[in-house]
Write a protein that binds this DNA or RNA. Structure first.
Lengths: 339, 339
DNA sequence: CTGAAAGCGCTAACAG
DNA sequence: CTGTTAGCGCTTTCAG
């Protein structure tokens, strides 16, 4: 694993660097280099373990084989699983991932886009923050391949892949209605991201469809960057203030976790005192007693589709007639004992 | 965010590219460029949002400001948290992370080292697989900055940062002894990684110290790449075969998870029928009923120290008198109701 | 004080 | 069939 350059190989083989380059990039035919020579060059470079300097290749070709991944927080289990699934898919194309967490900060996010762009990444996979519109518009103007994941911007025609958020919450509500729960609280974040807004909307729609007036006090919006303990406290208070509630929906995994903790503090029994469903499936929800009913996201499918859309752009695949609507995948309702 | 090069800036300012370069790299003094001119150049490049092409800078300077991170699996909560902590620390140095998962495959791991090396990363953070010795030796011979995390190679003098694995298990055992448990089973993986071996060793040592013969049938080694359901099955069987056991230690988080599932299947009560402790603290363990006693790793401290050691090397800091022993941090025993 | 020139390692056009 | 040449965008002498 020494620093060995194409010139070294050329010297060893007694040819010019360009000849080595052609051979190693399988351009034998175009350059019409004799098979014997090609084999010789290949052999030598294999023997000394030659691998081209990616930086030089990138500078020359303008390609880095690196995709920039921007998520909210790589330590969130949802994003960790998504990142792994994306990594697995992208590996097949011989690409790598440079990842960054936005911490849900718009300025941070815009910076990361800039930084990755100037690092010449070949494409972007972004779970955008709520205030990233400007940054995304700028990015699209550069024609860099770009796919949004987990969230999207309805006004921007950017290929997006995500779970069907409305369907997920509708499934929750339908289950509640079917089981006779009529007073469902909705616990969500205060961020204005489409995915969260759609979840809330589906909650409201379901109430309306069932001719129940939406009661604003049954909706709790928790500031996203509040420390965990504060979140628990807020939920705790919310539950105490609304003893009439017979069921709760947590719109995302960490709220579900905080919710379980809050319910424990209130000494309420699930599902006798209160039934619950959380978005995102976790080991915790599966193994908790009682098992928690969840809306599980099809992470692998989302990752696969995102990579397809990304490489359609990278390879300028014409079939990529970018449809206006985001690609959505239905979630799975995993029913357990919590309802 | 257009492609704007140093030449463009030079033209706009009516100077030579090299002058722009000097100014932007704060080499005004050495180049003795007038403050007025420097300010003018800075202003212009700020106004048009100029950012140098990182690829070109890298090719020229040999620095990429990218660190290669190789872990077992980014979707494992331990590594996800570690990755996030590392990202946070590394950001302060204006570096980024290119990450890869080994899937615990030695060949894969060796490939990743090669790949990252030829991508000119400025340093490596590696949680090595058991069979990575050769690859690591090769890497050290290149003098690339390198820090091992979570695991280490006793024979190789490579700076390493990890939790004190032995202490962790000793704490478990001491707690068991103190509470009167005398038949403790140990459930671990079959991989020959030092961290795992040390955990097992501590278990054996504790028994010996307390004059209890080590019973091999009380140790269960589960193949690491077995599907989750199979792991549960193995543990289930192990418990049924050894009804004499009054307590169990799970040597890593996913075994703890599988263990809870297995115990549920056996319809055993924790801690009445069997007491348990798991390595790694998870939401699941905290919120499970009963709460599971765990050995929590000081992830942030590990990340901080790893970054310190890495940048000591990158900056050729002489104080980095690479000590032979790995840097270890004591874990925290979090006692809950499971013991 | 400033600019011209070389070169990092590679690839692609083109000339032999 | 193969080698020469130019140049990707930047930094770094070094000459003026």
């Amino acid at each position: 694993m020494k620093k060995i350059s194409i010139k070294d190989i050329a010297k060893m083989a007694g040819v010019a660097p360009s000849t080595v380059s052609s051979v190693l990039n399988n351009k034998n035919k175009e350059a019409r280099i004799s098979d014997a020579l090609a084999d010789k060059i290949k052999l030598i470079s294999k023997k000394v373990g030659y691998r081209p300097n990616s930086t030089a290749v990138s500078l020359r070709t303008g390609k880095t084989n690196i995709i920039g991944l921007i998520v909210e927080d790589i330590s969130n289990p949802f994003f960790a699983l998504l990142a792994k699934a994306l990594e697995d898919e992208i590996k097949k194309h011989d690409y790598r991932i440079l990842y960054c967490s936005t911490e849900n900060d718009d300025i941070n996010a815009a910076d990361l886009v800039q930084m990755l762009f100037h690092r010449q990444v070949d494409g972007f996979l972004i779970a955008p923050t709520a205030g990233m519109k400007k940054s995304l518009i700028e990015l699209t103007e550069t024609n860099k391949p770009l796919v949004l994941i987990d969230r999207y911007y309805p006004e921007l025609k950017i290929p997006s892949v995500l779970v069907d958020n409305k369907l997920g919450i509708t499934m929750c509500m339908d289950l509640f209605w079917a089981k006779g729960y009529t007073k469902t609280g909705f616990i969500t974040t205060n961020v204005e991201q489409v995915n969260m807004l759609e979840r809330e909307e589906a909650y409201r729609d379901s109430l309306k469809k069932n001719k129940v007036a939406v009661s604003e006090k049954f909706i709790l919006k928790i500031p996203i960057n509040l420390p965990y303990a504060e979140k628990v406290k807020k939920i705790n208070l919310f539950i105490k203030k609304n003893p009439v509630l017979d069921s709760l929906i947590f719109s995302t995994n960490y709220l579900g976790i905080a919710g379980l903790e809050a319910i424990k503090l209130c000494r309420l029994q699930i599902p006798q005192d209160i039934a619950i469903i959380s978005f995102d499936d976790l080991d915790l929800f599966r193994l908790y007693t009682p098992g928690i009913t969840t809306i599980s996201q099809p992470i692998d499918e989302i990752a696969k589709q995102a990579i397809i859309l990304l490489f359609n752009q990278i390879n300028k695949n014409p079939q990529q007639v970018s449809q206006r609507k985001p690609y959505t995948f239905p979630p799975h309702l995993i029913t357990r004992k919590s309802v």
